[in-house]
Amino acid sequence: MIKLENVHKSFGDHEVLKGVHAEIDKGQVVCLIGPSGSGKSTLLRCINGLETYQAGRISIDDETVDVTAPSIHDLRTRVSMVFQRFNLFPHRTAIENVMEGPRYVLKQGKAEVREKAERLLTRVGLADKLNSYPAALSGGQQQRVAIARALAMEPEAILFDEPTSALDPEMVGEVLQVMRALAEEHMTMLVVTHEILFAREVADRVLFLDGGRIVEEGAADEVLRQPKNERTQDFLRRVTHPV
């Protein structure tokens, strides 16, 4: 469904992505892991058209992701994104945050959208926070609202950019739980994460990105338990045994 072919991306002289190939099939959960600075977030942002890329091709169901093309807005409604720092709209309540896209981008009716937003917020366990402003919510709650906001677009896939990295440790679980439930419903997901346990349990496939290239990929169990690449081994050792 999402296809990356020889994607190159530079910031000035600094080449971040040096020819990335990858494919994410419909209904798959793929975790993208790798050291910081390896280009994971940049890759995700390129797929959502938040960054341009200089060479290669990214496509969603054969439609090319091109930031300068008018089709980009439509593509973004089909592939949602969840950010590390939540990026909820601070001037709107939880339910308004969720309603914003369907109401003003997809132009769906107010009553219908409201009902959908209530349903989604209930699903992420926030039925009692509909009218709270983001500032009154914990990090974990904010991220769950952000996931509901992404789901409200009824996307074909969701990109998660380190969704738990900005959270206090005790709140990581509640967000991962919501994501696991989505995976069980076969939502197509590409997740940049450092949560190796989550990846092992939930992901169908794991991609290991290092130095702007995917150096290892395969079934989650394989890559995470018996990595073949030396750098993957080294990375996993450091992540799982930090001391």
């Binding site: 938040l50 807005h73 439509d74 973004r76 409604t77 949602s80 950010f83 909820l88 896209g101 992404a150």
Partner: peptide, 22 residues
Amino acid sequence: DRGQVEAAKSIGMKTPLMMRRV
């Protein structure tokens, strides 16, 4: 915050709508 612009774009908003709503 730039994150606001990105969040607005990521739900498919075009610039005028993003300006007005976000």
